[in-house]
Amino acid sequence: MSISKKDVEHVALLARLEFSEEELEEYTKQLNDILGYVDKLNELDTADVEPTSHVLPLNNVLREDASRDYLDNETALKNAPDKKDGMFRVPKIV
């Protein structure tokens, strides 16, 4: 399994990351090295093994349905780079 520069560009776009041409080359190589290393696991036959959903031997961690106040509006917006009318203001979307 190997990934191309195009795959890296695609994933970068989905993650809203911008890379220079050198970075693209570098990450493509590094990612391929990592995948090559992990590929060793494919030597194991896992046909009859249930996929792991979680590494902890736990299930049904639940809370009761009770509500409480936590942050007031001012505190919630305290770290926002931009705000208006009690709301977070974000750049143009489309």
Partner: peptide
């Protein structure tokens, strides 16, 4: 009464960003 993964209220129509954590 509360959200799916935290205890904030789900009430409709509150002032913006007052039912957050």
């Amino acid at each position: 009464n509360s959200k799916i993964f935290c205890a904030c209220s789900t009430e409709f129509g509150a002032a913006p960003n007052t039912q957050v954590c």
